[in-house]
Amino acid sequence: KKRTSIEVSVKGALESHFLKCPKPSAQEITNLADSLQLEKEVVRVWFCNRRQKEKR
């Protein structure tokens, strides 16, 4: 499966949402994916990866 490159503006939106809520619910992920026009899975994985980055 190909990697999804996320635009800078979208990254900013994801980042600001992450600061408010690092573990969004499935519903929040769906809403966020719809508003940013990304697949739910891409948003879910982004949050997962971002939480791991926070641990490092």
Rank of each mutant, 00 (worst) to 15 (best):
G12V: 15
N49H: 12
K1E: 04
K40N: 09
Q37V: 05
K11E: 15
K53N: 06
R51M: 13
K55Q: 08
K53H: 07
R50A: 04
E39A: 08
V43E: 02
A13M: 09
E28Y: 11
P24L: 01
I6F: 06
R44S: 03
S25F: 02
Q27S: 09
W46R: 06
K53C: 08
K2I: 04
K53S: 14
V43T: 03
K53T: 11
A33Q: 00
S16K: 14
E41V: 01
A26T: 10
F18A: 02
K23R: 11
I6M: 09
L36F: 07
P24H: 02
A33I: 01
T4Q: 13
C48R: 14
A26Y: 10
V45P: 01
P24I: 02
T30G: 10
R50D: 02
K2D: 09
K20Y: 05
V10R: 09
E41H: 07
R56L: 14
A13E: 10
E28S: 04
Q27G: 10
E54F: 03
K1N: 10
P24A: 02
L32Y: 01
P24M: 01
N49K: 06
L36N: 01
E7L: 10
L32R: 02
C48G: 09
N49P: 01
A13N: 06
K53D: 15
E54L: 05
R3A: 08
S25D: 12
I29L: 12
L14V: 01
Q27V: 09
K11Q: 12
E7N: 14
L38C: 04
L36I: 04
S16T: 11
V10A: 13
T4D: 06
Q37S: 11
E28V: 04
S9F: 05
K23L: 11
K2L: 13
I6C: 09
E41N: 05
I6G: 10
N31F: 08
C48N: 15
V10S: 08
R50I: 02
F18L: 00
K1L: 02
C21S: 14
T4N: 10
R3S: 13
K53G: 07
E15R: 00
A13V: 15
L32N: 01
T30D: 14
C21Q: 15
P22S: 05
A33M: 02
A33H: 03
E39N: 13
Q27E: 12
K40E: 14
V43C: 02
R3W: 08
K1T: 11
R56G: 10
R51T: 11
K11S: 10
S16N: 11
C21T: 10
S25Y: 03
R56W: 06
H17Y: 14
K55M: 09
A13W: 05
V45F: 07
K40H: 08
G12C: 15
K1V: 10
H17V: 10
C21K: 04
V10Q: 14
K2Q: 06
L32V: 06
E54K: 03
V42G: 05
A26K: 09
Q52R: 08
L32D: 00
Q52N: 07
L14C: 03
L38Y: 00
E41W: 05
F47V: 02
L14H: 00
Q52A: 14
E15L: 03
S9Q: 14
A13F: 07
E28F: 03
R3M: 14
P22Q: 15
N31E: 13
I6E: 10
F18D: 03
Q27P: 06
L38K: 01
E54R: 04
K23N: 15
Q52W: 07
P24E: 01
N31Q: 13
K23V: 10
H17I: 07
V45Y: 06
E41K: 04
G12D: 14
R50G: 01
E7G: 13
I29A: 02
R56T: 11
K11N: 06
L36C: 03
P24N: 00
S25H: 03
E54T: 05
R50T: 01
K23H: 08
E39Q: 05
K2T: 13
Q52P: 02
L36E: 00
S16H: 05
I29R: 01
V8G: 14
T30V: 09
F47R: 00
T30W: 05
K20S: 06
K23I: 11
N31T: 13
C21W: 04
L19W: 05
F18E: 01
N31R: 13
Q27R: 11
E15K: 03
K55T: 09
R51Y: 15
F18H: 00
E15W: 03
K20E: 05
V43G: 00
K20N: 09
C21H: 12
P24C: 02
Q52E: 14
L36T: 02
V42M: 15
N49Y: 04
T30L: 09
P22L: 02
V43M: 01
S16V: 06
E7F: 06
L19C: 08
L19T: 08
A13I: 11
V42D: 12
H17N: 07
Q37G: 13
L32C: 00
V10I: 11
R44H: 03
Q37I: 04
A33K: 00
E28I: 06
Q52T: 06
E28K: 03
V10K: 12
E41F: 00
P24Y: 00
S9M: 05
E41D: 14
T4A: 08
S16E: 13
R44G: 08
L38A: 02
K40A: 14
R50K: 05
V43R: 00
Q37F: 05
T30F: 10
K40F: 11
V42R: 06
L32T: 02
K1C: 09
V42A: 13
V10G: 06
I6K: 11
V42E: 14
P24G: 00
L36S: 01
E7D: 14
S35T: 10
I6H: 09
